[in-house]
Simulated assay, not measured.
Amino acid sequence: MLLVIDAGNTNIVFAVHDGVRWRGNWRIATDIQRTSDEYAVWLLALLERSGLSPHAIRRAVIGTVVPAALYHLRRFCRDWLKREPLIANLELDWGFEVRMDQPTEVGVDRLLDGLAAHTLYGGPALIVDFGTATTFNVVGGDGSYNGGAIAPGINLSIEALHLAAARLPRIAIGRPQSVIGKGTIAAMRSGIFWGYIGLVEGIVARVKTEFGAPMKVIGTGGLAPLLAEGTDIFERIDPDLTIEGLRILAGRNPARSGTERPLEND
């Protein structure tokens, strides 16, 4: 089995794939102080509850946009799984060209979204990833990564609104019953939800015009299903696109970094 670890700014997702399907998917808040032993206590218990043995994990791959989290995640794989994890970076075989002025500046999550989208759904494609930041990622018909746009994530916007305005409370995101709110919280929910729909629709329309060719629009990230309720621009919603990208990347690089070799006899 393959363990994929997607470490984002807000959450870290651990998922196990048996070669045919995903067998488990769990998330924990990102904390760069969390040790490898703490990851082990948490994840090994979840594996046991799911009827999965850590000894069945033959490979591991890590993708992270939080460099400070990498050390303990790598130590977890080495110490507790006895596997040397594959680390997603530009030194690997991605199977496509990164057409950026500074390719090393591109977040690995954006490249993973592009890899998964092209492999699973073809291209050209525009992937909208609703995470800590909302990213718009353009993939060419040949799978090449062609850049995009980055906007503040919806939860960041909610938190900024609460912190900057003394009388505005912290709210939860949800689709409002109407655009015209009859109270402060209803008005905030309307502004956040429909404001984000307007942002996404506007950027998608401009990207399509600038790209100059038909393209699929794919939504991913935990909030993608909710926001898709307010617009018809998405042809597909795939909340697991990033971990699919890690799975596909591991398949393209089976022998890199000792991924398939145990660190000791087992």
Rank of each mutant, 00 (worst) to 15 (best):
G19H: 07
W94Q: 02
I12W: 06
I185A: 08
G141W: 05
G140A: 15
T259I: 15
N146T: 08
W22L: 07
D18N: 13
M100W: 10
G222P: 04
P85R: 05
T104K: 15
I237W: 09
I233C: 11
H17F: 13
L168H: 07
N253W: 12
W42K: 03
T242D: 02
R236P: 03
L168W: 11
R175F: 10
W94H: 05
E105K: 12
G19Y: 03
Y71V: 10
Q33L: 10
D266P: 04
I57K: 01
A133E: 00
W80A: 07
V65Y: 07
I57F: 11
K208G: 02
G143L: 08
G174K: 15
E210G: 04
K182I: 11
P85F: 10
V66I: 12
T10F: 08
L168V: 13
R261W: 13
E235G: 15
L199F: 06
S157N: 09
P67D: 06
A255V: 14
P225L: 07
H55K: 14
T10K: 04
G141Q: 08
V200W: 00
L199I: 12
V108A: 00
I32D: 11
F193H: 00
R261C: 12
D113I: 03
G245M: 05
G183D: 14
L120Q: 08
G95E: 12
E260L: 11
L44D: 09
D109I: 07
D232S: 15
G141C: 07
D129S: 14
R170I: 14
L249W: 03
T10L: 03
V106I: 08
K182C: 11
G183S: 15
A228P: 03
R252Y: 11
I28W: 01
S53Q: 12
G123H: 03
G8V: 01
E97D: 15
R110C: 06
R206W: 05
H17N: 10
G222T: 09
L115T: 04
R78K: 15
K208D: 02
G222S: 10
A29S: 13
L163S: 11
E229C: 07
I57L: 13
Y196L: 03
I12L: 08
E210A: 12
F76G: 00
L156Y: 05
I171W: 05
